[in-house]
Design a protein around this nucleic acid. Structure first.
Lengths: 132, 132
DNA sequence: CGCCTCCTTGACGTTAACGTCAACGTGAAT
DNA sequence: ATTCACGTTGACGTTAACGTCAAGGAGGCG
């Protein structure tokens, strides 16, 4: 497929630094089966693909997905290119459940954001009242 | 303000059942200072106001806010009616930070949702291919 | 050669957010 | 009068998601 030029790789330290986490976190994700970097001897070697996966995981974490949920989703990104009808169908069913769940969370977030914004607006009004 | 009719109240069990949590959760929230129901003797009595607070907290939890963050926000809903300039200004500053943070999370959620939807779409396409 | 830096694998510690007893009180029902 | 169903306060247990050592290996360099 590719004896290509863009074969940049990362060490644990580099990748952790770049994405603002610790190396411990990367090891933990690996132990939990979310990442599977290849090795050069003992040392972990992260490819651009690993890095992309990690970014997806971290993004999910920021709005409250558990590691298990993150893993399920990133695994599905890979499985979606399967060629077996049955697998694709179960996958699709699960994906639709996940989509519904994410929409609920999105709605919860939206409502909360609106209320916080309203509260800030209330503050501003009271301040301008007091300043006159 | 009101010697009003809509003075419905709840016991722990009732409120917990209605909002789909355990009584332990309510006690925990109280211990952490998120709720402060009044008492009738020993027993906790939750007002509509307490119930509203709780719903806000639970909503926040569903998209990854910690209890500490939830508490800060619900406390601000109350503080926003203050009459002291200094307090209002610090409050407003904090609220703007929180708004920025919520927007980041919203963006993270949106991107993730889109990707999951794309993946589902990919599944559907591969399925129709296979069905022909 | 010795030191430094970065890597490795354990293994135990910590924090948040509850779960899960135990032991007890209390008003209503049988 | 006792049995429930519900409430109360401790207090210890659990799970997730890492943090924090400790002990050691491998490559570079002055």
């Amino acid at each position: 497929m590719s004896a290509n030029a863009s074969e940049r790789t990362w060490t644990v330290g580099e990748l952790a630094d770049e994405l603002g986490v610790t190396t411990r976190t990367l090891r933990h994700y690996e132990a939990e089966g979310l990442l599977a970097p290849s090795r050069s001897g003992q040392n972990r070697v992260y490819t651009a693909r690993d890095r992309a996966r990690l970014r997806l995981i971290l993004r999910g974490r920021r709005f409250g997905m558990t590691l298990a949920e993150c893993r399920e989703i990133v695994d599905m990104y890979d499985g979606a290119e399967s060629s077996e009808m049955l697998q694709l169908k179960t996958l699709l069913g699960r994906l639709d459940e996940i989509i519904a769940d994410l929409r609920r969370r999105q709605d919860d977030l939206r409502r909360t954001l609106r209320e916080v914004q309203d509260t800030a607006e209330l503050c501003r009004r009271r301040l301008t009242e007091l300043e006159i």
